[in-house]
Amino acid sequence: MEQRDYSPLQWANSLEDMLALTQDRVDSYDEQVHLVSFSMGGYIAALLALHPKNQNKIKSLSFVCYDPNGLSKEETLRRKNVLNSLKRAKNTNALSQASLSQYFTTQEVQEAQYPQTVLAMASDLGIGVMRAHMASTTPREDLSSQLSQLSTPQLWIAAQYDKIAKADAIKEHCLRSPSATFELLPNTAHMTPLTSAKDLASLLTAQLTNCN
Rank of each mutant, 00 (worst) to 15 (best):
F182D: 03
Q55F: 12
L143S: 01
S196F: 12
Q160C: 05
Q149V: 07
L194E: 12
F104K: 02
I58G: 01
A197P: 10
C174A: 15
S101H: 07
H190S: 07
E31S: 07
N81S: 15
F38C: 08
R25M: 01
R176D: 12
P68G: 00
E183S: 15
N56F: 15
I44Y: 01
D168Q: 09
R4M: 12
V26H: 04
A135I: 09
A167Y: 08
S28I: 03
E31Q: 09
H34G: 03
L48Y: 04
R4W: 14
A201M: 11
V33N: 01
Y43M: 13
L48F: 09
N54S: 08
S144D: 00
E111L: 02
E74W: 04
L9G: 13
W156M: 04
G126E: 04
L19K: 12
Q116I: 05
A45C: 12
T117S: 14
A159F: 10
T22R: 00
E75Y: 14
E108W: 07
L83E: 06
Q97G: 14
E172W: 10
M18Y: 05
S202C: 11
D142N: 04
D27S: 14
L184W: 15
S39A: 15
A167D: 07
L77Y: 05
S145I: 14
K80E: 14
L61D: 01
I127A: 08
L50R: 00
A46N: 07
P8A: 15
N69D: 10
Q149A: 11
L184M: 15
N210K: 08
G126M: 02
S60W: 00
H190G: 07
C65Q: 03
L175W: 10
E16R: 13
P52T: 05
S101W: 03
I170A: 01
T105F: 07
S148P: 09
K171W: 06
I44V: 15
L95N: 02
R88L: 12
A159I: 06
S123L: 12
A132L: 10
T181M: 07
R79W: 10
